[in-house]
């Protein structure tokens, strides 16, 4: 695993990182009609074999709506990559396609240089996934669930037992190890799902909304764990709504809206001197004036 990349920017040029505000790739061109097929003729960079994830021309349509409409993205190996976007932007759809939960309509996903969808089993071995909006096997206890995830990965019983105990301790779940997950709070459920994603020590972690409903202390603990993991050479991809968190925690960020990448690169490149939140609002748009709901005022 290569050394941690300096936050000033990747050594190799990232064609998708906008050097200047306004030069972001997709807004410059008008959006194609959601029903149109992406043009294969469009010049496309070959996948970057050194990247943890290298996504090219990814499309997914549900009915008439293109949830992901031609996404190109490189996640450098060893980066702490934040994916931000408004509700319904396609974050979850994109991450699902990158982790084997959803088959793309078009496009390729390479994981450490290997084509993911031609051999998903090999790709899944190096991925730890925390999906958003799925249930857990909640009739198991927390301890059983983490053990189950480890055993499903084909791990040895002793190793699973040891790591399960470590994870429960690190995520403040030790006291509730033998409680059924169905009785967990939302934050505890997130944490036990995170533990299930970590048990096999993957090279890449893909976490969809990992901090949702998690209390501040646990969130800080999780941030420490993830930071340590990145420093040791792992790659983390997180999606979040919380700009402030991404700005502080991540070294790279991509802004996604309406199924397209509006900007991607190191955090400093993307925010271009502004706060990430201001930059995000400027790129995505959609702020309403405060006049709106006059009848809602209580006096």
């Amino acid at each position: 695993m290569s050394a941690h990349l300096p936050p000033e920017g990747p050594a190799r040029p990232n064609p998708f990182a906008p050097p200047q505000p306004g030069a972001a790739t997709p807004p410059a061109a008008p959006y194609p009609h959601p029903g149109t097929v992406p043009q294969a003729a469009a010049p496309q960079q070959p996948p970057d074999p050194s990247a943890a994830f290298s996504i090219r021309g990814l499309w997914k349509r549900f009915g008439d709506k293109a949830a992901v409409a031609g996404v190109d993205l490189d996640v450098p190996s060893g980066s702490f990559y934040g994916i931000v976007g408004p509700n319904g932007a396609g974050k979850t759809t994109m991450l699902s396609m990158a982790t084997g939960l959803l088959r793309p309509d078009f496009g390729t996903v390479s994981v450490h240089g290997g084509d993911f969808w031609s051999d998903p089993v090999a790709g899944k071995r190096s991925l730890g996934v925390l999906p958003d909006g799925v249930r857990l096997f909640d009739r198991l206890t927390g301890e059983q669930l983490i053990t189950y995830a480890g055993l499903l990965r084909g791990m040895d019983r002793a190793v699973v037992a040891e790591r399960t105990a470590d994870l429960l301790r690190a995520l403040d779940l030790a006291a509730d190890a033998k409680t059924f997950v169905v009785d967990y709070s939302a934050g505890m459920t997130k944490k036990v799902a995170l533990a299930s994603a970590l048990i096999h020590a993957p090279r890449i972690l893909v976490l969809d909304e990992p901090f949702e409903a998690v209390d501040p202390v646990s969130a800080a603990n999780i941030r420490d764990i993830l930071g340590e993991y990145v420093r040791s050479g792992g790659t983390v991809v997180v999606s979040s709504h919380v700009m402030d968190l991404v700005q502080r925690m991540c070294d790279h960020v991509a802004i996604i809206a309406a199924g397209r990448i509006l900007a991607a690169g190191t955090v400093d490149e993307v925010r271009a001197g502004q706060s990430l939140e201001d930059r995000f609002v400027a790129l995505v748009g959609g702020r309403q004036s405060a006049e709106g709901l006059s009848w809602l005022r209580s006096s």
């Binding site: 982790t99 084997g100 939960l101 998903p120 089993v121 790709g123 899944k124 071995r125 991925l127 996934v129 999906p131 909006g133 799925v134 249930r135 857990l136 096997f137 909640d138 189950y148 995830a149 499903l152 990965r153 299930s196 994603a197």
Partner: peptide, 12 residues
Amino acid sequence: DSSAFALHVSTG
């Protein structure tokens, strides 16, 4: 299994 089946898919 409902959507908990995602664990089987993501672990491959």
